Simulated assay, not measured.
Amino acid sequence: MVSKKQRLASVDALRGFDMFWIIGGEALFLPLFALTGWSVFHFGHGQMQHTQWHGFSFYDLIFPLFIFLSGVTLGLANKSLRGLPVSDRAPVYRKAVKRLFLLILLGVVYNHGWGSGIPADLGEVRYASVLARIGFAWFFAAMIVWHCTLRTQSVIAVTILLGYWLLQTLFGNLTPEGSVNAWVDQHVLPGITYQNRAYDPEGVLSTIPAIANALGGVFAGRWLAHHSGDHKAILKGLFMAATVSLLAGFLWHWVYPVNKELWTSSFVLITCGCCLLLLGIFYLVVDVWHWKRFTYIFSVIGCNAILVYLGTSLVNWQYSSKSLFGGIAAALPQQAAGTFLIACGVILLQWLVLRFLYKRGIFISP
C-alpha cells in the first residue's frame, strides 16, 4: 500500500539489516572470538542471545524492529479511510484481513504445524507466533491510522502503554507463572504455548503493547514524509525522539522492568528508541550519503523479509553450506576457521537466492 515514490531505500536496507541476523549473522561472533581472542566478539556473541527474563540485549530488538518498520510504511503512505463510502473501504479491509490471516497461517507453518501429525489435533497447534504478532500489530495499527486523527493515534499509543502497565502490576506480578499474561494465555489462548510454558512469549495479552511499537513506526514514517527532502529536520527529529524514548524507558525500567517475554511497556519504549536511532543512522548513510553498496547488500534481504524468515525454519541451510564448503572447512588448520566458513556459507547461500529474486523483481509479501 506504499507507492514506489514513498519508499525509502533506508527503510528497505534497515529491514534487511534486521533480517541479516536472522539468516545467520548471529553465528559469526563466536568463531571470530575463537580465532582472534578479541573481547569485542565475545561481547557481540552475548548480545546475540535473548535475555532470559528482565533486561535487554541487541537480539531482543530484532522482532520489535520488524514491527516498527511495518508501521513506518503505514506512516509513509499516510492513508486515511475517514469519510470514504463503504464501497471504497471494503477492498482495503479485505486485503488487510487477508494479510492478517495469512500471517497467522504462515506462523503455524513456521512452528511446523501440528505436533501430533495427521489426523490433526487442533489442541496441539501453537497458534501464537512471531508472524501472527506482526500481523496483529500491523492490522490494528492500520485500523487506527486509517480511522483516527494523529492526535487520537498518539492518545491510543499512550493509553496502551499505561493501561498495560496497570494491568500487569495490579492483576499479577512480573514472574513467569504469576503474571497476568500467563493467566490470560492459559484461559484464552487456543492450542499450546511455546515449550508448554505457563505463558506464551507471543501470547494474547503481550500482543497489545506491540501495537504501540507499530504506532511508533507510524509516527516516524509520518515525520519522514512530512519533512521529505529536509535531511537536517528528519535527522534531528529522529535522534531527539530516540533520546527521549530511551531515557523514558530506562527510567521506567527501575519500577517496571524491561522484559521481552512479557513485552512490558518499558520494553516498548527502549525498543522504539533503538529503532528510531537505527532509522536515523540508516537514513544518514543510505539516503543522505548514498552508500549504494551498503544499501544493496541489505536491500536484497529486506525486500523479501517474510520469505527470509520462513526459510530459516523450512530449509536446512546449514546442511547445504556444509555440502558445498565442508571440505574446505575441514582442511583449514583451526576448527573455528571452519565453523566461521560454514556460517558465512549459510548467509551467502540465502543471499544469493534472495538476489536472484531481487534481480527479477520478485517480491513475496502477504
Rank of each mutant, 00 (worst) to 15 (best):
P333Q: 11
Q153G: 14
F17P: 06
V346D: 14
L332G: 11
W138M: 03
F356R: 04
V2P: 03
R126Q: 11
G311I: 09
I192N: 02
T149Y: 04
L224V: 01
G117R: 04
P85D: 04
G115W: 11
G44E: 07
G361N: 10
I234H: 08
Q6S: 05
C148K: 06
C272M: 11
A141N: 02
N111M: 07
H50L: 07
S323K: 07
T271G: 04
H187N: 12
Q6H: 05
T295S: 12
V286Y: 01
W114T: 15
I270Y: 02
T169D: 02
Q335E: 15
S321I: 06
F66N: 08
G327H: 10
S70P: 03
A9P: 01
F29H: 04
F43A: 14
G280M: 11
I328G: 12
G345W: 09
C275A: 15
V184H: 09
F219E: 05
L189D: 06
Q168P: 00
G71C: 00
A198E: 10
P366S: 06
K5W: 00
K292C: 09
T193N: 10
I208T: 03
T169C: 02
F325S: 06
L341V: 13
I306E: 11
L262W: 04
F63P: 03
K359H: 13
N304L: 06
R94K: 11
G24L: 04
A90V: 12
G338A: 06
I270G: 04
V158M: 05
Y256W: 05
F101A: 10
I234G: 08
S179W: 01
I364M: 09
R99D: 03
G46N: 09
Q153K: 05
S87A: 14
K232V: 14
H253Y: 04
L102G: 12
V109H: 04
G327R: 12
V258L: 06
S266W: 03
P119H: 04
I328E: 12
D121Q: 10
I208N: 01
Q168S: 05
C275S: 14
T295H: 12
A27G: 06
W183R: 14
M240V: 12
V145M: 00
I342Q: 09
T36E: 03
G71L: 00
H45K: 13
V184Q: 10
R293I: 14
F219L: 03
F294S: 13
Y309M: 14
L314D: 15
I67T: 08
L32K: 03
D12Y: 01
L279I: 02
T149P: 05
Q350N: 13
L28Y: 02
